[in-house]
Amino acid sequence: MASKKKRSLNAQNDRWVVIAADSVVDAAKSDGSDPVFVRLKNPATDVASLYLFGAGDADVYEVKAFDEDYRSWFIGQTVQRDGRLLYITPVDPLYLLLPYIIKAGKEQGKFQPVEQVLMDEDFPACRRLLRCARTRASLPQVAEEKEGNGQRFYKYSQEKTVEWLKKKVDRTVEALKKSNISVGGGVKSTTYIRTKQECNVQEEDYLRYAHGLISEYISEDLSKELQKILQLPEVSSPKDLEPPSKKRKVSDTPVEAGEDYTKFNGASFARKPPKKMSAAQKSLAKADKTGMKSMSAFFSPKAKTEKN
């Protein structure tokens, strides 16, 4: 019997499947200008991430990829090997401005025009944020504002910023409650009746989940500050106390999968057949994993996974 072929490297892609906010398309229709993809500094990680400016830079969007291993597309009468699905969703430009305003506040500590603050030779496209419709209106939510000589000057305010972020969290909590996203350690289930006490736990679960989501768009320091204001206690579950190398291992199943008993209660109980352990997983399971953490040091932050 012929042996299975190894996966080869995926050569550069020339097609992308995206799901984009209608405003990307509609705005271009009305003002005739085409949107552009640019790289900006990711406010949470400080590394380059892909964004899209639309409507003549009035709107800004981020690009995220749904990237499950072993996926390809059929598009009409063609195959596309790259099975990713890209999402183009609106981004609040304030998240992207915030690192610059904070930096200026730390370095200068004085009122400045935003044009002076927003300079970054590593990310020249950040100037486009100045043209975003929401930028001017929302700056006072994170900075003190002064006017003089027909110009506006800003100075970072942590109190204002945290207040603003709190509102963001509240909004997100509301949206989470309306959705069927499971935010708790367990899983929501229609057949599972929660006690009152668990309802209270639930409230904190929503808050923690929303805080985690907002933290994807702010620095770690600000995230911790926000956590304090929200009075979210530090999680000290055994999972978090474990050294990082043991935390995830090979498994990449959702966090709650292990404790999901509720799924077995439902009438629609239909479990996926267990996935067979591949030869690779088997040999990996056997491999000595001590020292894995230190090995991580060899991977530069920008190293790409060998996804092929």
Binding site: G76, Q77, G83, L85
Partner: peptide, 21 residues
Amino acid sequence: DKPPVHLLPCEIEHDGPAEVS
């Protein structure tokens, strides 16, 4: 063009035409 689109549970090492229909 509004072609039918399918997302498959495998990686096909090919980019280009295929007799999908």
